[in-house]
């Protein structure tokens, strides 16, 4: 009825007992830096943040200044039009920068893999360069390029509007130049999105190049024999086989764009310019917590965002997850 029981080792010495304890303990020992740091920075503050979100707290005045306010922070957050506005801004900029990223990266990767390995390497190196440089540095460079009176972008547009060959197309700009790329609420989203697009296209190109390299060349050959032209080979052979890579790339883009902070922060000079359209949720959260010093509201808003983002993440994986990861 019962499985045979093992005979207990009678002559188990103290030494081997200690050894057994050590063996059991070893993996936790190796994991202890993770467990301690994550416990302190990851788990504990979650509970503290629940507590905090029901209080009013100015961090400058120390922990003693906490005051219980009940659901007030949540009510304020949910009825705060700026919160919904900044969420909308984040979403719009995520789409404006994210969609073109993939629409450009896919065909560029397709063109790249046609090249010899040497040329491909040089182009890839150039395309990937923006990804390794800091967002603050590149945003500073773009801030100077976007400058209203001395920026190169307005200077080029002015020349194009004046040039005899190009004035038919750009002449209409004369009335609006110089454009305030980072000052105008109507332009800021495009200005920010362009920088984000520019910085991350290269990363996506590398992902798609790697994806294309996994496709068996025989498939292209077979498609060619069946009479497919290169456009059809791209849409009918490459795209479907790239699905997992596209899903992965798009997921990373969405996650990255939800956290957009540096680029709008620098381009709007810390929120001085184009506040209405250029501020993302991260910028707003930073403003509440560190400029208005209202940690309680910031905590409550973090929770509201957590729920909203959680719902969207859930929907995204629900609709695209299975398809994207390739069910077969």
């Amino acid at each position: 009825m019962y499985p045979p029981r093992r005979c207990p080792k009678l002559e188990e010495t103290n030494r081997s007992k200690r050894q057994r304890f050590l063996n059991k303990f070893t993996p936790y020992g190796f994991l202890s830096p993770y467990l301690i740091i994550y416990g302190v920075f990851g788990i504990f503050p979650v509970f503290f943040m629940v507590y905090l979100s029901f209080h009013m707290w100015n961090p400058v005045e120390g922990l003693g200044s906490m005051e219980f306010v009940g659901f007030e922070n949540y009510v304020l957050g949910l009825t705060d039009p700026t919160l919904w506005q900044t969420m909308w801004n984040t979403l719009v900029m995520a789409v404006l920068s994210g969609v073109p990223q993939h629409l450009v990266a896919l065909p560029m990767a397709y063109l790249l893999v046609m090249l010899g390995s040497r040329a491909r390497h040089w182009f890839t190196t150039a395309y990937f360069l923006p990804y390794i440089t800091s967002t603050v540095a590149v945003s500073m460079i773009f801030y100077v390029m976007y400058s209203k009176d001395s920026g190169i972008i307005n200077a080029v547009l002015a020349q194009l509007a004046d040039g005899s060959l190009t004035s038919w197309l750009f002449g209409g700009l004369k009335d609006v130049l110089p454009l305030g790329w980072v000052q105008e609420n109507s332009l800021i989203r495009y200005s920010v999105s362009f920088v984000v697009w520019w910085k991350y296209v290269g990363f996506n190109i590398v992902i798609y190049t790697a994806g294309l390299a996994t496709i068996n060349p025989d498939l292209y050959e077979a498609a060619t024999i069946d009479g497919a032209n290169s456009w059809q080979r791209f849409t009918r052979v490459s795209l479907p086989l790239l699905k997992p890579f596209i899903f992965f790339g798009v997921t990373l883009t969405i996650i990255g764009n939800m956290n957009l902070f540096d680029e709008p922060y620098v381009l709007t000079v810390g929120g001085q310019f184009a506040q209405t359209a250029g501020k993302t949720i991260s910028n707003y959260l930073y403003q509440i917590a560190w400029e208005w010093l209202d940690m309680g509201s910031a905590a409550a808003i973090s929770w509201i965002l957590f729920v909203v983002i959680g719902i969207f993440t859930g929907l995204y994986f629900w609709f695209f997850g299975r398809q994207g990861l390739g069910d077969e």
């Binding site: 503290f48 905090l52 902070f261 959260l285 917590a289 973090s302």
Partner: peptide, 24 residues
């Protein structure tokens, strides 16, 4: 469990961890 916590913590957008990070 540790594996699960690691995966889950990767899904949390870093901006939401900013306030707790600062508090700690």
């Amino acid at each position: 469990a540790i594996f699960g916590i690691m995966v889950a913590s990767m899904m949390i957008p870093p901006v939401l961890t900013l306030i707790p990070y600062y508090m700690v």
